[in-house]
Write a protein that binds this DNA or RNA. Structure first.
Lengths: 239, 239
DNA sequence: CGGTTGCTTGAGTGGGCTCAAAGACTGTGG
DNA sequence: CCACAGTCTTTGAGCCCACTCAAGCAACCG
């Protein structure tokens, strides 16, 4: 079931959060950040497989990923998942649910993860008082619209996998982590589902990239050996 | 080249615009709508093939489609288009460009079309004064994020075409036009490009749907005969 | 009217899928 | 600490959906 927000309250403030630049506060005064901290009064931890929210849930909060990762998906009528996205630290879930006050997809933790709970009504009031915060929220939503454009482009299997790996790499790098050596938090099946490819195809392409010296992979551990070649494989997509 | 905004100024006010509910003003007082009208001081017409904006252009304005339609696309390095979306009356272009103040795609008119020019900086100031307007902008962006989710799902060719036709149908219906009889403003090639299918595949699927009595199509004229079956073909996608 | 562009239909090919099976890792209980 | 079951990943074989190539037809335009 959907996790209870009281599970575990963490003693963390936006003021000293390492994700601050990716997440909410930008160009705020100390007083404004404190006000924001009052707003975001809840932070909690989820175990692997726990739901952050479910399709059909009423929307009241945005969630900022603090640690771990999530997959967002819908269920078709025959019970099959369609994975729509993965979320990593510094990224925000829930923007899609604002306009109808309802989640149109589910999100589960792929590993032990923690999130900040951002009550949207309160945030909305605060943006009315703090212009730079309004600007930031709109920028985050704009970024989301922009990045989704690139995410869902059609391409041959190898290009899709290359694009996926680069996306993960860049998102890790942005947080100051290694963009060349990392562990995937999702299964081959999840990757395939997300990219619209069979599990076996993902596996084959990883093997193939290994033979071409583009990367070294062992189960979920990935080491990118030739970033340039990986970019080439997505070549022609977007310039 | 990108159209000049001075091309033709139309005498139209938000106050008596039939698209008002889809576009900007919602729940505003008369005074607020007048203020908005001052903001949106420019409306102009584009001929088929004219650019509304180009990849790389600096972002200063959002555009609301008043009449006609647009395709949005990127060019790959070998000059191939990748069509990302089509835009119809009441829909807004440019949300993706806010965060970097730069358009990451191009938009051209598919037919004679007109748009309202919305200077974003001014809009941003106004949302700070009018809470319900801020709410509406954020709702529009949320809607965009939400609908893009459904747009780019992987599916077999027939399901994609069915989804595409339903999307067009629903968007026309929302404006009070017929959702069962309409003319497509884009070529088979554009549809195929957008859906990630070959032109010939689009043509074959149209023929096939015609044999199955789902629709009657003659070039760009479409008449949907069996809406239920069309929905069935997208079955399993989203519930 | 002839040229161009867009649409349709057919034939054959191929990339990625399905089906199948074996190997590698994880967790649990004895 | 090991055995065993279950899950995830890899690899192979064969097939099918949608692509490419090709040709013919219909509409539009100068």
């Amino acid at each position: 079931m959907t996790a209870k927000f009281s599970t575990k309250s963490l003693q963390i403030a936006c003021a000293n959060c390492s994700l601050a630049q990716l997440c909410l506060p930008v160009g705020l005064t100390q007083a404004e950040i404190n006000e924001l901290d009052t707003l975001i009064n809840s932070r909690f931890v989820l175990n692997p497989g726990e739901f952050l929210f479910k399709e059909g849930d009423t929307f009241t909060n945005l969630f900022a990923v603090r640690a771990g990762s999530f997959k967002a998906f819908r269920l078709s009528k025959d019970g099959e998942q369609t994975i729509l996205n993965f979320y990593m630290p510094g990224e925000i879930l829930g923007f899609h649910a604002i306009h109808e006050q309802k989640f149109h997809l589910s999100a589960v933790a792929l590993e032990t993860s923690s999130v900040c709970v951002i009550p949207f009504a309160n945030l909305s009031n605060l943006t009315q008082k703090i212009p730079s915060l309004q600007k930031h929220i709109i920028n985050l939503m704009s970024q989301k619209i922009d990045s989704d454009l690139t995410n869902y482009l059609n391409a041959p299997a190898q290009a899709r996998v290359a694009r996926f790996l680069l996306s993960i790499s860049q998102r890790l790098h942005r947080r100051g982590l290694s963009g060349t050596e990392f562990n995937l938090s999702m299964s081959r099946e999840d990757i395939g589902n997300f990219l619209g490819l069979a599990t076996e195809t993902i596996s084959r392409i990883f093997s193939q990239m290994q033979k071409q010296q583009i990367l070294a992979s062992e189960r979920r551990s990935i080491k990118i050996l030739d970033m340039a070649k990986l970019h080439q494989l997505t070549y022609g997509e977007t310039g």
